[in-house]
């Protein structure tokens, strides 16, 4: 019964997502929508580390950036097929996840947080200063659009549908992981690390693999982003970009897939809707975030549960 409700909800959301572009006339809004889909994929990636096992991870912007630059440089400098660039970006995500996660996730929690912070800064510096490779602060321009069966994804509605397909696959993978031993153990790690050790579980290996797959999601989304805008710039991949995704998870609900989706939508689209406030829009957005987090500390995804409990309590007597 509950499983059916979930399936129906998912199908309705999917149908809405499929129909959504029909109601959008401006190019700007369609691109915003595309960006939202890409960002939700990142949120799903971050969810594996921060959402499930609960460790703060500031590397998102760096890994997203590396994914963007991997495909951006391969396609512009070597003329490689964009899809191969995308695959290479995923590989880059895996390598970074391993190289950064393997040493730091074996140590106490804080070392990983510091490693991701340090990495964020290193990547930013490298992207801006290794001019011979990255074009420095000029960024990388003229990145080709993706293409599929002769349809150019430079056309933003085409991009949307393909990205949406990737998002659905990303959600399916997330479900598999979250509801398997992997997800449950990562949550157990968040609940009580010492007890996880005591159960004979090599928790570091769980955290490392979660970080690697999360990094693959993020780098993949980064590469989509590069082909979406066809231009990338090092200043796009800084600390505040990371914070965006942390906000998405906190606002949507840590560790849950609906949380990633809702958080991704709200944090990407809400600031745009507030742009009429002129220079105060970011301030207003931050204030709104703060208020929402105060009133729904477990995020939007927790609202149905809260309501269910309230209803139960109200009718609990009989």
């Amino acid at each position: 019964m509950k499983k059916n409700t979930r399936l129906i909800t998912m199908l309705i959301c999917l149908a809405a997502a499929l129909l959504l572009p029909l109601g959008i006339s401006s190019h700007y809004n369609q691109v915003l929508l595309n960006q939202t889909v890409v960002y939700i994929i990142v949120a799903l990636g971050l969810n594996f580390t921060m959402g499930l096992s609960g460790s703060f991870d500031f590397s998102t912007a760096a890994i997203f950036g590396l994914g963007s630059y991997t495909t951006g440089l391969l396609t512009t400098k070597l003329g490689i097929n964009p899809w191969i660039g995308v695959v290479a970006a995923i590989g880059m995500g895996a390598v970074v996840g391993l190289v950064l996660g393997f040493p730091s996730l074996r140590l106490r929690g804080i070392y990983f947080v510091l490693a991701t912070l340090g990495f964020l800064e290193i990547v930013r510096q490298l992207l801006s200063n290794m001019t011979w490779l990255t074009g420095g602060t000029n960024g990388v321009a003229n990145i080709p659009a993706l293409e599929i069966f002769g349809f150019s994804l430079g056309e933003s509605r085409n991009f949307y549908y393909v990205a949406l397909l990737f998002l659905v696959i990303g959600i399916a993978i997330s479900y598999r992981i979250i509801y398997s031993k992997w997800g449950r153990t990562l949550i157990a790690i968040k609940d009580n690390e010492i007890a996880v050790d005591g159960c004979g579980i090599d928790k570091a290996s769980f955290k490392i693999k979660a970080y690697i797959i999360g990094s693959c999601f993020t780098a993949f989304a980064g590469s989509l982003n590069a082909h979406l805008f066809q231009f990338i710039h090092p200043a796009d991949f800084t600390f505040d970009f990371t914070v965006r995704f942390i906000m998405m998870l906190m606002l949507g609900g840590l560790g849950t897939i609906p949380g990633c989706v809702i958080g991704g939508i709200v944090v990407t689209i809400l600031p745009e809707m507030l742009k009429f406030l002129g220079e105060y829009y970011w301030l207003a957005f931050s204030a709104l975030m703060l208020v929402m987090m105060m009133f729904i500390p477990y995020g939007f995804a927790s609202i149905p549960d809260v309501i269910r409990k309230k209803v139960k309590r109200a009718g609990g007597k009989d």
Partner: peptide
């Protein structure tokens, strides 16, 4: 077991067992 109970509080009873 631990003197101060250490369970996985956000999981169910069954999940506490399946994880281990």
């Amino acid at each position: 077991t631990y003197q101060n109970i250490r369970l996985f509080d956000t999981l169910t009873v069954l999940e506490n067992m399946t994880v281990a």
